[in-house]
Nucleic acid binder design. Structure first.
Lengths: 187, 187
DNA sequence: AGGGGTGGCTAATGGCATTAGCTTATGAGC
DNA sequence: GCTCATAAGCTAATGCCATTAGCCACCCCT
């Protein structure tokens, strides 16, 4: 080992704060290096390239989300668990909208695994409905799509009208809870 | 006027086909120019810059979607309209996944207006539920968030497990229809 | 005290968006 | 049919960015 200095985690951390402060479009290696007080090429000692940095950031974001959500869901079941999950998810997005916009979905194993950890937590919350496996997977996808869609749109400021988003989100939670509880077909 | 040749619309068209063929990440002015059989700087005679090209592409995509959806919803009401709307939306995404990934939401008026046209069609479909204005707006946001979330994830290939997406989407439609029909509170 | 490896640096390359300024074809009016 | 203004194209140049190559200094371990 040599000087302590930077590390991959530290670089990711600097990059995440940069994105928080200046938006996802401001993410360049030059800007990260400048914040870290280092020359641009030095970053390559810690991350392979920009694409990997993006992936590492996404993993960190998903893990943060997973941790928060895991805590929120603990000890609750069924409707209450979904409500807590969705509320916690949105809180994170509202706290860090740019960070959420910087999330990338790549087929890369590292990112896919972090996504899976997140999905597993949702899956666990939905099993509380007594769903069998395949059914729970479909339900989880619906939950994920719904939350993610709202999150993306809110993070990008895509909702124009003056109606309160809090109220919309209450309705969204209601829609998910009601819609997933009502059986699709009487099979 | 001078030579017919290119036009802003033609550039947008070439760019959309490029994205369809090679993915959203392949969108560069150099690549568009090459496809159009022209030198890169020539594009600036038709679009202001890359950001404007992206915006114009997004407008085109949203208008295509609006046209399809307008047709699909015509003559249907309530549940059937929502079902048709969601099905048509997803068909477009499956046909043009890269194009959908290239969609940008900016506060720019041009894009916001195209988005509004799309939202208005959804709003019209939801009024069929007899919702009053504010209620219909919240419901439209839920519908939009849900569809968009699923579309983004499917376009990015973010669903890993082998379960059929068709089945998931059936459940999603069911969730939206059921969830939006059930009143939130008996106010 | 010394040596190996790690983490930093400067310099160089190539792709891209964008701007400046020149050239030419076209079509409207005569 | 000729002229000319202008739209639409071009080449050249700039500057930012990611990435690579190759060099140097510091620190820990012995």
């Amino acid at each position: 080992m040599a000087r302590a200095a930077l590390s991959a985690d530290a670089v990711v951390d600097v990059a995440l704060r940069l994105v928080d402060d200046e938006g996802a479009a401001a993410l360049t290696l030059a800007a990260v290096a400048s914040r870290a007080g280092v020359a641009t090429p030095s970053l390559y000692k810690h991350v392979r390239n920009l694409a990997e940095l993006r992936a590492l950031m996404s993993v960190q974001i998903m893990d943060d989300l997973a941790e928060r959500i895991g805590g929120a869901v603990l000890g609750r079941s069924a409707d209450e668990a979904i409500r807590a999950l969705m509320t916690t998810w949105r809180e994170y997005v509202v706290e860090h909208p740019h960070r959420y916009s910087a999330l990338v979905q790549t087929p890369e194993p590292m990112v896919a695994q972090a996504g899976q950890r997140l999905v597993d937590i949702m899956l666990a919350a939905l099993r509380a409905y007594g769903m069998e496996d395949s059914e729970a997977i479909h339900a989880t996808r619906c939950l994920r799509a719904t939350m993610h869609g709202f999150a993306v749109l809110e993070a990008q400021n895509a909702f124009q009208l003056p109606e309160k988003l809090d109220e919309t989100y209450d309705l969204l939670i209601h829609m998910v809870v009601t819609g997933l509880r009502t059986p699709l077909r009487p099979t």
